[in-house]
Design a binder for these strands. Structure first.
Length: 231
DNA sequence: GCGACAG
DNA sequence: ATCTTGTCGC
């Protein structure tokens, strides 16, 4: 049973949230410490309105990428969107969804950043710390850090730097598409993160994990859920 | 003081 | 994230 943060985080101020991130940062590990990966999961959070957050998680077999399990959870939105504090808005409902899974994944890919964050505590990292699960941040745009041009070829990447520190990779998952911002969440290195993200990419820009998750999380989720039933 | 700013 | 139609390109 994962912690229910709905209450604990209810009256958190941005200042307290930042202090919490700074306190947790020392516990993050970017050394590979994962089991043999037989399952990977993607998680995504959508908002039905300003009031309600909805998380969807889909577990896929690895390396086949066939859907095996899924969960959807809803919870009141506990925190406004503040750049750098995304996890306080989305973690509670994600934990609730994770608790509903029959199959706990070996690796979790989250929308957003891992350590590529001002205090090295993006949502993927925070979820990793809360669950103990190896995690990777897969962002569609940049939060922080600098980088050079990204080579055009599929699988090519450029380091994302904060001063002298390598905090992630700007990865071209397909030729001719906007690159993704990949960073270690917890219990995984950058090189290994890139490897698993590319292994989850088939013919689209986004890895299958996140494609399944946000297909189920938002909009026309019924269409995706029906596909899951036909297993 | 002026921008930048995951989802 | 979410609101939204047509449209440009492979």
């Amino acid at each position: 049973m994962l912690p229910d943060l709905t209450r604990e985080w209810a009256d958190l101020t941005p200042r307290e949230a930042i202090a919490m991130q700074q306190a947790l940062a020392s516990q993050v590990s970017t050394t590979d410490d994962l089991p043999v990966v037989k399952t990977v999961a993607g998680v995504d959070v959508g908002f039905e309105n300003k009031e309600t957050a909805r998380a969807a998680i889909v577990v896929l077999s690895y390396p086949e990428l066939v859907p095996l399990d899924h969960a959807i959870a809803r919870l009141p939105t506990p925190f406004p969107y503040v750049p750098g504090l995304l996890s306080f808005r989305e973690c509670p409902v994600i934990l609730k969804a994770l608790d509903q899974l029959k199959i706990q994944p070996d690796l979790l890919l989250c929308d957003g950043m891992g350590i590529a964050h001002p205090r090295r505590l993006g949502i993927a990292t925070h979820i990793g710390l809360l669950t103990g699960m190896p995690s990777i941040g897969v962002g569609k745009s940049r939060l922080t850090g600098r980088h050079g041009e990204v080579p055009e070829g599929k699988g090519e990447w450029t380091p994302l730097m904060d001063r002298e520190e390598e905090i992630g990779a700007v990865l071209r998952t397909r030729e001719g598409v906007k690159p993704l911002f990949i960073s270690p969440g917890h219990r995984i290195s950058l090189a290994t993160s890139i490897k698993y993200v590319m292994a989850c990419v088939t013919k689209y820009r986004l890895p299958e994990t996140t494609r399944w998750a946000d297909g189920v999380a938002s909009g026309r989720g019924q269409r995706w859920l029906k596909a899951l039933e036909d297993l």
